[in-house]
């Protein structure tokens, strides 16, 4: 049975549709990623699931409890880490943790085992004010506060936004450890590269779920052939590629352009010759496997057409 079960949820703010018929199921003990750009509706969905907002339509269950009717029971079973750092800046690390532990009717000592691995990293700074911590440490403290009462479901809204690459990596390792203890985790992120770290993901854009599955499944469903193209000058190259026959889409990914084409229409060699023929320097073209971002771009286009 799904731990989180969302059925056709819609939410509007005035004329702005934040969520439009969203459905998803999260199985016990998995890390489920909600991937989408800013403004896609991730936070709204989180707030509905943690009983802070009421949906306009549809219903949702967390741990078998209805988010509207049984909100009080849900509140004691979940851990929630909002997108923004939301602890008391003028209280010390230990005071914050102690406060949230007592709020949930427990204490640090009782649940020390549960948070030990994470808390051990910030314990040397336990007398420091939370406001004076670095981004990575704030994040760890917030995670401790969300975990201190042994929740069965953990909601992490963009936990890695504004955190450096190393801390992000550490953070994901912590999530795996938490998962091992049987906690179900719903995590949202705007970073496509983090999608591959989840067990299952949903891609969300403009309030709609545009794809759901394991990262591999989603990548496997990518319908086109993909080339990675480098060359100079980069921007004219992007424009040139978009005019090439057989090219469906072309996006810039850092130093490389990702070119999507119908399977079997183009080859890397043929494309390279065409580009060099147009006078670009240092050209290299290679076959690549699509990543989640390629899939997202592809699906987002369809979603746009579908809405337009």
């Amino acid at each position: 049975m799904a731990v989180i079960n969302v059925k056709q949820i819609s939410k509007r703010y005035g004329s702005c549709v934040a969520l439009d018929g969203v459905s998803l199921q999260v199985n016990p003990g998995e890390i489920y990623g909600l991937i989408g750009p800013d403004g896609a509706g991730k936070t709204t969905l989180f707030r509905i699931l943690v009983t802070l907002l009421l949906p306009d339509e549809g219903e949702a269950e967390v741990d078998g409890l209805d988010t509207v009717r049984d909100y009080r029971k849900i509140r004691s079973r979940i851990g929630y880490m909002p997108g923004r750092f939301s602890l008391y800046q003028d209280l010390s690390v230990e005071e914050n943790l102690d406060f949230f532990a007592t709020m949930f009717g427990t204490s640090i000592a009782e649940n020390y085992e549960n948070i030990k691995e994470i808390y051990a990293q910030i314990e040397p700074f336990k007398d420091r004010k939370a406001g004076a911590l670095s981004g990575g440490m704030k994040q760890k403290l917030a995670l401790c506060c969300a975990l201190v009462h042994r929740p069965s479901v953990l909601f992490l809204d963009e936990p890695t936004t504004g955190v450096d690459a190393i801390s992000r990596k550490e953070f994901w390792n912590m999530l795996y450890r938490i998962r091992r203890s049987g906690v179900t985790i719903l995590v949202s992120t705007p970073y496509m590269d983090e999608a591959a770290l989840c067990d299952r993901i949903s891609l969300i854009q403009k309030g709609r779920i545009i794809e759901t599955g394991t990262p591999d499944e989603i990548v496997g469903r990518y319908p086109h052939q993909l080339f990675g193209v480098c060359g100079e000058p980069a921007y004219p190259l992007l424009k040139f590629l978009r005019t090439c026959s057989g090219v469906l889409r072309c996006f810039s990914f850092g130093s490389e352009h990702h070119v999507a084409a119908e399977p079997g229409v183009l080859t890397a060699g043929g494309l390279q010759a065409a580009i060099e023929g147009a006078g670009f320097r240092n050209v290299s073209v290679r076959d690549i496997r699509p990543n989640i971002e390629d899939c997202f771009m592809e699906l987002a286009k369809e979603n746009d057409y579908g809405q337009g």
């Binding site: 943690v50 802070l52 509140r75 004691s76 949230f100």
Partner: peptide
């Protein structure tokens, strides 16, 4: 303003 109200409301308090 600091978002801590969100956490307080989500707690069973």
């Amino acid at each position: 303003e600091y978002g801590t109200m969100e956490l307080l409301l989500v707690s069973p308090v």
